[in-house]
Design a protein around this nucleic acid. Structure first.
Lengths: 114, 114
DNA sequence: ACACCATATACGGTTTTGCATATATATGAT
DNA sequence: ATCATATATATGCAAAACCGTATATGGTGT
């Protein structure tokens, strides 16, 4: 993946917020991101699919839920860039983080998630 | 400047190469970048204007030439991201750096530059 | 089987982006 | 003043990016 492709992936508000939240929490499912960003589910899903296709995220199905994390083979410099951005742009993410925290823990095997 | 705006600026092959070359050489003029990237002058100029408008570059006129450098007030984390990218993507830039080096020194006050 | 929840994809439309080409402006040299 | 060089901008067009809505897929529980 060339660097300009990498940065294309970060060049959208929705995708960047998803990536930074995942960087912070290691792993999040689609419905958590949908809630945290207060966006429609198809919109989130589409962006996550794009990030997966670009090799930036990997997904893991667990029951009904699909969890996304940074792709294990993402180059270190890319992870480093994401972490640097996260460290310096917490304010920009604050509302989304608050929203995540007030949702209560991870989705349970039974019952609804979001 | 929000981070997604910053990354939009890096999300193009031409712009990113300009930025990384400027990160490496501190200051370059339009004709040097035009030669190094082997692109048309209006194309380079347009992208540099965009980066200037976005607050990522600043320009300085010296005679016929306009030199661009990273904007003095660019946040440190942004500079850090650029430097990290440069350090890890030298190969991607190799041809452009070689082209710059073989052009002979900086444009002189007399004579043509490129 | 059916209903429900989570996720993915398809379709159609609007907006944005990038480009090539032509032209304008500014500086310097003769 | 004229010409050459360097840079900037304008125009028109094609391609790409995003979005909302509708619908499809897949898993869970009854």
């Amino acid at each position: 993946m060339t660097p300009d492709h990498f940065y294309k992936s970060l060049a959208d508000d929705t995708r960047l917020r998803c990536l930074l939240l995942i960087t912070q929490y290691q792993e999040l499912c689609v419905c958590e991101l949908t809630e945290a960003l207060n966006e429609t589910q198809p919109k989130i899903s589409r962006h996550l699919a794009q990030l997966r296709k670009n090799g930036i995220l990997s997904d893991r199905r667990q029951g009904q839920w699909v969890f996304y994390q940074l792709h294990p083979e993402l180059p270190n410099w890319s992870k480093h860039v994401l972490q640097t951005t996260l460290d310096n742009q917490i304010l920009w993410l604050k509302n989304n983080i608050d929203q995540l925290e007030t949702m209560g823990g991870r989705p349970q095997r039974t019952g609804s998630c979001c």
